[in-house]
């Protein structure tokens, strides 16, 4: 089967690519487009390391075909930081040492962005449930929750 042509928007840029019909969006991002910030953990939708936003909605890019990206807006970890430096969420993950090995971190940051875009003032329970699809085997999650709370406060202050 020949490759299929897909037109999409990734982090605000119009992008065209060719992919096999069965390739996941994760494989396309990493292997075809060189956007290796999105990580592969389990490739079965359990760990959240490959989290991206599709039209603002958080999804696992391993559970989506690349061809399904036709006509949508994809946001990956590469689209989170601004031209003038790290996003507040990224800065707070650093300040709170909310990462150790870092493999889960891009997924956590994209998931956090999706949460705070929707709910600027989430309580701890909301944060923990929202992020329950992102697994971290290093931090024990507390530092991540503190980073998200601090980022939310900062974003509210800036707004």
């Amino acid at each position: 089967m020949s490759k299929q042509h897909v037109s999409t928007t990734i982090n605000g840029d119009e992008v065209e690519f060719l992919c096999e019909p069965h390739q996941s969006l994760l494989e396309v991002l990493r292997d075809e487009l060189g956007l290796t910030g999105t990580k592969e953990g389990c490739a079965t939708g359990d760990c959240g390391a490959c989290s991206v936003m599709i039209d603002g909605r958080l999804v696992c890019s391993c559970l989506m075909l690349g061809v399904e990206a036709q006509g949508v807006e994809v946001t990956t970890i590469e689209g989170i930081a601004g031209a003038d430096g790290l996003h507040v969420i990224q800065q707070k993950y650093l300040e709170h040492a909310a990462l150790q090995c870092g493999i889960c971190t891009p997924g956590f940051i994209v998931a956090t962005k999706a949460l705070l875009d929707r709910n600027p003032d989430p309580d701890e329970t909301t944060i923990r449930y929202w992020l329950a699809g992102n697994l971290c085997r290093c931090t024990g999650y507390d530092k991540i929750v503190r980073a998200v709370q601090d980022a939310a406060q900062n974003l509210a202050y800036e707004a």
Partner: peptide, 9 residues
């Protein structure tokens, strides 16, 4: 059923 990510699809 599933996480936030799964719910999105």
């Amino acid at each position: 059923i599933g996480s936030t990510q799964i719910q999105g699809r």
